[in-house]
Design a protein around this nucleic acid. Structure first.
Length: 420
RNA sequence: GCUGGGUUCGCAUAGCGGCAAUUGCUCGUGGCUGUAGACCACGCGGUCGAAAGGCCUACGGGGGUUCGAGUCCCUCACCCAGCA
């Protein structure tokens, strides 16, 4: 194995640490934020952009790339990194998250529409299984729900794998540990993830436990399916919001895998932080720890202080494309708004200042808020690119600064400065 | 000048006797956590109210029929098309 993870510095007042992971394509310093490039592209950005920004690694997705263009195409083109002209480390997610996002999460979307309100993964609304709907809603509404659900082609989870219905053409596709690992080996990323099941954050204990049993079984099967020895495989901790399930899963994952990650969706930030608190004590010190899918500003601070090393999140790029741009607290960024501002708001129409004065990204160095406002109002493609550049730069550099702060024994001060 | 068609909340549309009035766009404000997301939700005449709801003012102008009129009738103005 070409992977060596060493802890270079431990924070005195928290579990935060600075680490160094050696991979076949170079060294990654942690804490680290992975920009997400699901389809072998961080939307609107080139590999060179990401290099200029200072990103250390790109995360792509096995489900999406396995569907299109196909893992064998990527293999023939020299592997994932070469395919996208990125010579630094790469990572692929297993497709486990799509068990959720193309499965049970879709049902939540249906309910959101019926109730006319949003049910996000953090929604406080009570999740209702389709079978229970008739008890809760008038019949005409139920008819509508049935209609919506019948149109919905969810991912169907079985004990040994998942039937996906392709979001591209509706084709039925079988995914299990063997398939996922084979695809990930073909694509050849440095870091890969075991195939995991994904519970709904609103399931009860029994359902969650059944899901966790699947994740554990699929994890072992993923390890058994692994043939290459130049890819570091992360196991995934699950167990929803249930303490004993999380603790069992954390111990189990740490026992069998050379690297550990925490998966799931959370009904609140409190649950998210609680889950980390439960899991981290079960992780050996010298294993890299990845917080899957997490990466809002506050969550980075809280995750790092709890001892997590790696983070990835679509928030910077998605928000960037939607004109929701990060702002340093010194320039008006507020925790309650996730340190973002909405550049398309009317108040910025005549604002000559840079987006975030003090930010050294390409966007802030060259353009006014008024110009960015205009680009977003006009839905010009450049708006998405400039928004993405700023947001990725902001988060990547925030984590860089956190790393420096840990090295200089002032992480706690910095955290206070941001979160109060 | 004649004949026909038209004039509805910023723009464009629906509406054929019970309407503060459809839909799209624009606009306004939220939201976005391992990306089916260049997306989604809500609001959009005024005013009072926490809400239910109330009260004003409104479908080019004026008049009429009717319990009730964007909706039917008359008339004026303007726009479009065809014929002169």
């Amino acid at each position: 194995m070409n992977f060596k993870f060493t802890i270079e510095k431990r924070d005195k007042t928290s579990k935060a640490r600075v680490g160094r992971l050696v991979t076949p394509h170079g060294v990654i310093m942690t804490p680290n934020f992975n920009p997400v490039g699901t389809q072998a592209t961080v939307k609107t950005l080139t590999a060179q952009d990401l290099k200029d920004i200072g990103a250390q690694i790109i995360l792509s997705n096995t489900y999406h790339l396995g569907l299109r263009p196909g893992a064998e195409v990527i293999a023939k083109m020299g592997g994932l990194g070469k395919f996208m002209s990125w010579d630094k480390p790469t990572m692929t997610d297993s497709g486990g998250f799509q068990v959720f996002s193309l499965g049970i999460a879709q049902k939540e979307v249906v309910l959101k529409d019926v109730h006319g309100r949003k049910m996000s993964k953090f929604s406080k609304s009570v999740f209702i299984e389709p079978a229970d709907l008739s008890l809760q809603l008038p019949s005409f509404t139920k008819t509508r729900i049935d209609k919506e659900l019948s149109k919905l082609k969810a991912a169907r989870v079985h004990d040994d794998g998942v039937w996906f219905y392709s979001h591209l053409d509706g084709n039925k596709l079988w995914f299990d540990s063997e398939v996922s690992i084979k695809l990930q080996e073909q694509m050849g990323a440095d870091l890969i993830v075991a195939f995991d099941d994904h519970e709904s954050p609103l399931w009860d204990y029994e359902l969650t436990k059944l899901s966790l049993e699947r994740t554990s079984r699929w994890g072992v099967a993923s390890l058994q399916a692994q043939k290459r020895n130049d890819q570091l495989m992360y196991g995934v901790v699950h167990g929803g919001m249930y303490e004993d399930l999380r603790k069992f899963s954390a111990g189990f994952t740490d026992k069998y895998f050379p690297a550990v990650s925490i998966g799931g969706s959370y009904t609140s930030k409190d649950v998210l932080y609680q889950v980390m608190d439960w899991c981290v004590p079960y992780f050996q010190e010298d294993k890299p720890r990845h917080m899957l899918g997490i990466g809002e500003v506050q969550d980075l601070f809280e995750g790092i202080s709890r001892g997590m090393d790696f983070f990835d999140c679509v928030a910077p790029t998605r928000r960037g494309r939607h004109g929701n741009l990060y702002l340093h607290p010194q320039n008006g960024g507020r925790k309650e708004r996730n340190f973002t501002m909405q550049i398309s708001n009317a108040q910025y129409q005549l604002d000559p200042n840079p987006l975030d004065p003090g930010c050294e990204c390409f966007t802030c160095q060259n353009f006014s808020r008024a110009y960015l406002h205009h680009l977003f109002m006009a839905k010009e493609l450049l708006s998405q690119r400039l928004g993405s550049i700023h947001n990725i730069y902001f988060i990547v550099h925030l984590v860089d600064q956190i790393r420096e702060a840990i090295l200089e024994d002032r992480f706690e001060d910095m955290k206070k400065e941001w979160l109060g």
